[in-house]
């Protein structure tokens, strides 16, 4: 466990030194929101339509920005053969997975913290149920990132990894996106946390199931 944290710390240190991935993810995520709000145009005046569309826009921007980061997550380790160097260390394969999941999730949370205020401005929201929204975003992100990290490792040794990752990832995260969008919608419509207990439960179940599966299959995903 402690070594997962070392791996995550190593990733974050390298990332914050260049901020390459973080910057592109933030900009991409903001661009998605701007493009959507521009393309909706006059509809944004109609608050009823906005409440129905906006949660989807938010999660699309998270998903796409996240995919950008995930596609680099293990690809970055290929430079100088670092992934092999890591596999030569006496650590369990799952420690590599856990470390990567932690660093990916931290970066994703940062992107989300920057995106949400801009989203609120663009779609004329005053966010009230911030705690509830935070729980939804955290649970949704963990589910998305834990599957995404696994698939990032799975595709890293293929020729067409940038193409393959979204194709593999999107059908698998349907069960994250749907409850996350529903719950976000309810929270934005001044809902209470008790209104989204079903969604939260499903997200939690998803997180747990895929976290366990990842522990079991990760070694095969990064094997030579």
């Amino acid at each position: 466990m402690i070594r997962s944290l070392h791996i995550a710390a190593k990733d974050l240190k390298a990332e914050f030194r260049t901020k390459q991935m973080l910057n592109s993810m933030v900009i991409f995520s903001l661009l998605v929101i701007v493009i959507f709000s521009v393309s909706f145009g006059d509809l944004l005046g109609n608050s009823k339509i906005v409440t129905q569309l906006a949660p989807g826009v938010l999660w699309i921007s998270f998903t796409f920005a996240g995919m950008l980061g995930l596609s680099r997550s293990f690809a970055g380790e290929l430079e100088n053969g670092c992934l092999e160097g890591l596999k030569l260390c006496p650590v369990d394969r799952s420690a590599i997975y856990n470390g990567k999941t932690i660093s990916n999730a931290v970066i994703m949370f940062l992107v989300e913290i920057i995106t949400v205020p801009l989203f609120a401005v663009m779609f004329n929201y005053s966010i009230n149920g911030l705690a509830g929204l935070a729980i939804v975003i955290i649970l949704g992100t963990i589910g998305f990132i834990s599957v995404g990290t696994l698939l990032s490792a799975l595709t890293v040794n293929t020729r067409t990894r940038e193409l393959l990752l979204p194709i593999l990832l999107l059908p698998i995260i349907i069960p994250v996106i749907i409850p996350a969008v529903l719950a976000t919608g309810k929270m934005l419509a001044n809902g209470d946390i008790s209104d989204i207990s079903g969604e939260l439960r499903l997200l939690a179940v998803y997180d747990i199931i895929f976290f366990i599966i990842a522990q079991l299959v990760f070694e095969y995903a990064i094997g030579d």
């Binding site: 698939l151 749907i178 409850p179 499903l202």
Partner: peptide, 30 residues
């Protein structure tokens, strides 16, 4: 490699389908 990686995806994919069903049902009833 093809056999190994697609086996991993075969497992992940199968696990996601029942969860998809639960989430879609939740979505429709809303």
């Amino acid at each position: 490699k093809r056999a190994r990686l697609s086996a991993v995806f075969g497992i992940i994919g199968f696990a996601s389908v029942p969860l998809s069903f639960l989430s879609i049902r939740m979505w429709r009833t809303h």
